Simulated scan of single mutants.
Amino acid sequence: MTSATTPPSTPHAPPTADASPGGRDDLPPLDVLLPAPRRLDPDPREDALAALYADEPPSRGPWTVRANMVTSIDGAAWGPDQRSGSINDDADWRVFRVLRALADVVLVGAGTARAEGYTALGRPRGLTHLRAAPLELALVSRTGHVPERLVAADRPPFVLTAAAGADAARSVLPDDRVVVVGDAQVDLAAGLQVLADLGLRRVLTEGGPTLLGALLRADLVDELCVTTTPGIVGPGPGRIVAGDVPAGPQQGVPVLPRGARLAHLLHSPHARPGAPAGTTIARWLLPIG
Rank of each mutant, 00 (worst) to 15 (best):
A133M: 03
G144F: 00
A115C: 10
G22E: 15
L139E: 05
V98H: 10
P62H: 08
R66M: 12
T210I: 00
L107M: 06
L139A: 03
V194C: 10
G61F: 13
A17I: 08
T128F: 05
S141L: 09
I232E: 04
R283M: 12
A166Y: 00
A48Q: 04
A164S: 13
S84E: 12
V172W: 09
L139T: 00
R261G: 14
V98M: 07
H129E: 08
R131S: 11
V172R: 12
W284R: 09
V255A: 15
T6P: 02
A166E: 14
T128S: 14
V179P: 07
L262T: 02
P157M: 03
P269A: 12
S59V: 00
P29Q: 04
A196L: 06
S20T: 06
V70S: 04
D74M: 04
G191R: 12
A163G: 11
P80R: 14
P134W: 05
Y118G: 05
L49K: 05
A218Q: 00
V146W: 06
P21S: 11
A218C: 01
Q250G: 14
P7A: 10
F158G: 08
P269Y: 02
D43N: 01
H264F: 05
A164L: 14
R258P: 12
V70A: 13
D244H: 15
T229K: 07
P230V: 02
P235Y: 10
V203C: 01
G111H: 04
